[in-house]
């Protein structure tokens, strides 16, 4: 009974994935007739060729890669610096520093002031509009902080006696010991930036700057407008084929990495929940 329910859960979870993969390889007419569920019908790869020959798709895909790499790198530097300092229990003003970060988890400026700020800083249509406003995730910060706190204090003392500076301790002692948590944090940030779309949607109006998520969003929005205005079913159906391909290509990196890194995500969450 128990097993059956759980198998049901697995089935329901996987079904949408299987469905878009099947559609991505299917002929349009079969999807339109509602015959494509678990297995492709009218198997072909022309839709893939079609999407992959679209230069805008490639530009946007490359943008996603660039944004993700740059944003993750910057986020890691800032988060590591702050988390390391927060992990120093004896530091004066530590609680204030923690408070400054944690308060932003529960209260934020909101959409409009943020929009006004980013525009007046002149960040629209630039990579920085995506990177800077999300450079520190407080959740990740707390995860990293609790990891650093668990490193033995004697290490620090020994290093100080050996004449290492704070930076020396951070780079030569702490970071080499923190490879696991660093990997987890990189994954957390990278997945979040890879998946993000709204920031780009809001602050960019040049199609050649979009990440692939916005490319996909525009496909979907186009299709749904066509469907709701009625009569445009042809357009919607052609798009549904292409939509599936784009979705598959967008999640592909995550799906490929997922089995190997899933463990890290879970350990990261656990670390985050074990807080002070």
């Amino acid at each position: 009974m128990n097993t059956l329910i759980l198998l049901g859960v697995v089935g329901v979870t996987l079904y949408p994935f299987v469905n878009i993969i099947a559609q991505s390889f299917s002929g349009e007419s079969f999807i339109r007739a509602g015959e494509v569920n678990l297995w492709p019908k009218g198997f072909n790869t022309t839709t893939y060729q079609l999407v992959l020959s679209d230069s805008l798709f490639w530009t946007n895909y490359r943008n996603t890669v660039v944004y993700t790499v740059v944003a993750t790198a910057i986020a890691m530097v800032l988060t590591t610096c702050y988390a390391y300092v927060l992990s120093k229990r004896k530091l004066r003003g530590r609680n204030v520093l923690i408070g400054i970060a944690v308060f932003t988890m529960f209260f934020n400026g909101g959409l409009i002031p943020n929009y006004v700020l980013i525009s007046s800083l002149g960040l629209t249509n630039s990579l920085w509009a995506i990177v800077l406003p999300n450079a520190i995730s407080v959740f990740n910060l707390l995860v990293m902080k609790s990891f650093f706190e668990n490193l033995p204090e004697e290490l620090d003392e020994a290093a100080q006696i050996d004449g290492l500076s704070t930076f020396g301790i951070l780079f030569r002692i702490v970071l080499p010991l923190s490879k696991a948590v660093m990997a987890t944090m990189v994954l957390f940030y990278a997945v979040a930036f890879w998946n993000s779309w709204f920031q780009a949607f809001l602050y960019m109006d040049r199609a050649d700057l979009f990440p692939v998520t916005v490319y996909l969003r525009n496909l979907i929005a186009g299709a749904s407008t066509a469907a709701s205005s009625g009569g445009g079913t042809d357009l919607a159906q052609v798009a549904s084929n292409i939509q599936s391909v784009t979705m598959v290509l967008t999640v592909l990196p995550i799906l490929c990495l997922y089995p190997f890194v899933q463990r890290h995500f879970v350990s990261g969450i656990m670390l985050g929940s074990v807080k002070g």
């Binding site: 859960v9 697995v10 979870t13 996987l14 949408p16 994935f17 469905n19 878009i20 559609q23 997945v191 890879w194 998946n195 993000s196 779309w197 998520t213 996909l216 969003r217 979907i220 299709a223 749904s224 549904s240 939509q243 599936s244 784009t246 979705m247 967008t250 999640v251 995550i254 997922y258 089995p259 899933q262 995500f265 879970v266």
Partner: peptide, 20 residues
Amino acid sequence: TISYLPHFLSIVIIAGMLMQ
């Protein structure tokens, strides 16, 4: 492993799947 997977999807993908 399977049940954690949807958590890692972009909301755009979720919307796309729902529409299909």
